[in-house]
Nucleic acid binder design. Sequence first.
DNA 1: CGACCTGGTGTTATCGCTAACATCACCGGC
DNA 2: GCCGGTGATGTTAGCGATAACACCAGGTCG
Lengths: 337, 337
Amino acid sequence: MEKTSRDPAMTDVARLAGVSHQTVSRVLNNHPNVREQTRLRVKAAIKELDYRPNRAARALVTGKTQLIGVVAQNSTLYGPASLLSAFEEAAGEAGFAVSVGRVKVLDRDSIAAAVERHRDQRVAGIVVIAPNSSAADALADVPAGVPLVTVDGDPDRSTPLVTVDQAKGAFEATKHLIDAGHETVWHVSGPADWFDAAGRVEGWRAALDATSAEVPPVVAADWSAASGYRAGQMLARMPEVTAVFCSNDHLALGVLRAMSERGRNVPHDVSVVGFDDVPEAAYFIPPLTTVRPDFAAVAHETLGLLLEQISDGETTRPRRTVAPMLVKRNSVAPPPR
Amino acid sequence: MEKTSRDPAMTDVARLAGVSHQTVSRVLNNHPNVREQTRLRVKAAIKELDYRPNRAARALVTGKTQLIGVVAQNSTLYGPASLLSAFEEAAGEAGFAVSVGRVKVLDRDSIAAAVERHRDQRVAGIVVIAPNSSAADALADVPAGVPLVTVDGDPDRSTPLVTVDQAKGAFEATKHLIDAGHETVWHVSGPADWFDAAGRVEGWRAALDATSAEVPPVVAADWSAASGYRAGQMLARMPEVTAVFCSNDHLALGVLRAMSERGRNVPHDVSVVGFDDVPEAAYFIPPLTTVRPDFAAVAHETLGLLLEQISDGETTRPRRTVAPMLVKRNSVAPPPR
DNA sequence: CGACCTGGTGTTATCGCTAACATCACCGGC
DNA sequence: GCCGGTGATGTTAGCGATAACACCAGGTCG
């Protein structure tokens, strides 16, 4: 029977290389004052033993971990999921591990609990994907001193924040419809307490105001195709509706279906624009014109802001926004005459 | 100036409670031999100082972390994303933190590197979402002794594995079409090197064989709506095609669009069934009949298998599969006559 | 009634690392 | 030809927990 001996430690490497463990530590941390020859000997020993430094020991003595905690809702909504994925990749490239704390609902208690779990783990920093007001409220409970960045959070709060420029995207989407000749544009909105939805309403309204178009009432929905469908059923019955800007692609999908059922052709009778550019949007019927956020850019900004706080304790520009891009496909046409 | 003093340690709690730090440790770990009164005093002190145990110190002395590493592809495909989210939730409830290592492509080197990063962190166990053969191959590089569970991986490999019962889902989907009166069922498949896709092909073929239906050639695609659309364009031109089982919902979406463009009505001219039950599937045109995997169940099985290995070093039932469920909507009808 | 257990607690060693300081050889400068 | 600086390395002292053992009071038992 082989006894499974413990993992090699720094002293084992040191012994093999014929140096002190401190020298091994210096090699590992790229200290300048190590002779090249020694460095090579140590590296060879490390390789031979398949030595890997014990992060726990290092964390214990330095008081720092290389862990970033993320709090995200347990949903598969395209936006948040993409963001999370992009952030994990970015953080990984920067040498940080990402610990994800999922939360069933975005209420204050759940988020506070998730943040606490991360603090227990002594993460170096925390990212909260806090897209609605209850989530944003929970951040008040986070003690100062913990590096924290909010994504998609409350623009009126003072925590460092990164968001997609919702208003800009919505403005462009709406303007695109107006430029196509529509007198006005209706809007099917996401949940009112989501900042993304609010920003899109704002941009839509600004675009209408800019051309003095009449501003129709907002049609409120949640993010689901189901609610888009219900909104669409209503809009489809109103002949004066010739252009609809939807707060996301799934809402748009529901609207498309409602229009189709009512025999209103998209885009000839009604134009529709979405938001998010989900991968399948190009294969809706018809292919959907939509607004594409740059999640990778949001992830990088977020990481940058967080790392700044981790190293400096401070942040210079605590608010960053990333411009989205209009993707034109076949769901927009001039209004029927 | 307040000097930010260090976080309270166990000795601080001990001093405040008038006991030794070891007693504090005993309280924290629910050792039986502590007087009730002492326990309460210690708990009060913990609360007063907002003391939280240092995981790094604990990990150092016990040699164990409460971290599970997950390797997943950096994609927003609905299936993997749902699985990941469900797993994070399940692990969190069991008191484990989850560190996600994203990988851009599922090739051997990337996965091996991600696994190494997790081993560097000394995770208690690793979950690899290894849905295709190159990913599965990478597992050969993982040394034995590291608790490891594969999800959606290679059924022929000996690593503990949890999967959705793809064949069963596909069988039911296909059978449902045959029962509706179709003479045979065509299949638009996902990438051939994905086990999910292969399992679905197998189930589809088994259902056809069971009723001695003719087995048409598999139409190969990837997972995208785009490729489903291309497959659909071909199928739409073939009048003998009256039923199509697609390997996922996005492929089905592409097929629906192709059919619609060619004027072939779904479900009256052609019936279509998908797989995954993405949230918006109910709002496709028409609402899509599809197969719904139970991701939460997969997540729980995975966690269970992993925890078994972590505590016992062994596993009793290293292979578990979770049955999916057919969800009937409006994309299936009897064939035209 | 002394040996022995047992519940409650304290003391000490230890995990594997980094920080701080100590050591020592070698160098150039006056 | 001694002095101080500097580069390369070693030694020691923790970081904050758990494990192992020591200790002590009080009860049980032969």
